[in-house]
Structure formats: structure tokens, C-alpha cells
Amino acid sequence: MIRRTAAVIVARFRRRYYEWSDSRWFLGSLVANETVLPLLGFFVWQSLRPSEGDVDLYFYFLIWTSIATASYEHHSVSNRIYDGSLAQDLLVPGYPPTLYFADNLALRGWLLALSAPFLIPLGILIGGFTFKQLILFLPAVTFAAVIRFLLGWCVALLAFWTGRAASIAGLVNALNFTLGGVALPLMFVESPWSDVLVALPFYCSLGLPASIADGSGSLAQGLQFQLLWTIALGAAAFLLWKIGVRRFDAVGG
């Protein structure tokens, strides 16, 4: 069972890999999109706190996090629900969401491959971080990637009930910006606000890995919240899919 699912994921990954090799402009625009909001935050805080070197490092890792966690299921999956082509996916043997998970991995793979040639030299230029910080960044960014995928996936599945899934996704993006540590890094927020922000899924999926990499955040506390959100959103995703497919079946797509 696990072997078959892994084989399906690999096959789907390959398919998307080839498909997107035809879409350099599309991929480029997604990289730009993932970069632009962290840059916006960076410009604001560099202007407000020009002397604080950590700002550069924080936003540098925020760009990496944003690209590594990119999720566009609110476009791809919700459109398949709207136009009824989801029906084809339901006929595939296995658990259909794994197909979209593979799509998501392929997309992130492309985005990382495209942005690495720019971001790695930039990191060397900025400097100021240790190998240990990089190692700590990895588990946090992996959890962040899972949380952002699950959050995007849950929003995409709302397309079973409303024609406005894309708008809701736009709202989640706005919340990511405001509460996810992009508009306002947590290092500039005082308690109790910072205690609230750190516990939200928006921060867990964006700002947290960057704050761990720049040394201002706590890995142990962060991972706890990330684990909680992974379980909660995973359960929500499972339920939404189950109820949504039943509804899709009932209304005929």
C-alpha cells in the first residue's frame, strides 16, 4: 500500500516535472510572487530599523521559507472542483489527495531549483549565520511546508461549498502577510501579542523557520506549535475531503 502510494507520487511528480518544464514564465512569476511580500516587509523594516543586522538575515530566510512552502491548491484543486474534472481524479485507484501532494512537491522543487542560483550567492553575501542555524532551519521549514500545504488544501476544498475559494485563499495570503511575520517580524512585537502570534498557523508556516534560522526564535516551542497545527489541519483536511466528495457526488460536480 505505502509502496504503491509512493510509486503514484513519483509518477505524478515526473508528470508535473515535464509539464512545468514548458512553463518557465509561469514558474518565474510564481517565484516573483513568493519573493515580493517578504521583500516588502524587508524594505519597511530596513527603513524603520536600519541599524539592526538581524533584519537582513530574518527576511533572507523568510524568502527561502516562502518559496519552499509555496502552495497553489486554491487555484489547481478548486478549479477542478468547479469544472467537474475532479471526477477523473476520483476514478484513480488510491487516495486522490496524494496526487495533489505530488503536484505540490513538484512545484516546490521547480521553484527552489529556479531561485537557488540567486539566493545562495545572496546568502553568502549577507553571511552572519552558522551551520547549526541552517540545520535547525530544516525541520522547521519542513513542518512549515506541510502546514502551508494543508492550510491551502483546506481552503481549496471549500470550493465544494462556495464559488469563492480563490478569494478565501487571497484572505489567507493577507493574513499570512499580516500575522505570519512578514509585515511585522516577531522580534519587534512585545508580549502578550507575540505569544498569540507565535501560536497561529500563519506564523508557524512562514515566520517561524526564519526566526529559528536567525537565532531569535525557539525551536522547541516552535516545533510544538507546528506539530499541533499539522495534526489539527491534517484532521480538518481529511474531514473536508470526505464530506466534500460526498457533496460533489450528490450535486453531480
Binding site: 516535472y17 515535464y18 512545468w20 518544464s21 514548458d22 518557465r24 514558474l27
Partner: peptide
Amino acid sequence: VPVRGSGVGEGLRFLLNR
């Protein structure tokens, strides 16, 4: 019309130069 061979390398090449 764009044309592409198969294989991972071809995919990468196609991304850069169609």
C-alpha cells in the same frame, strides 16, 4: 509548435531553451 524529447535532462533543457 514547441517540441521536446523525453528524459529529465530534456525537461531542464526545455525550461531554458525551447
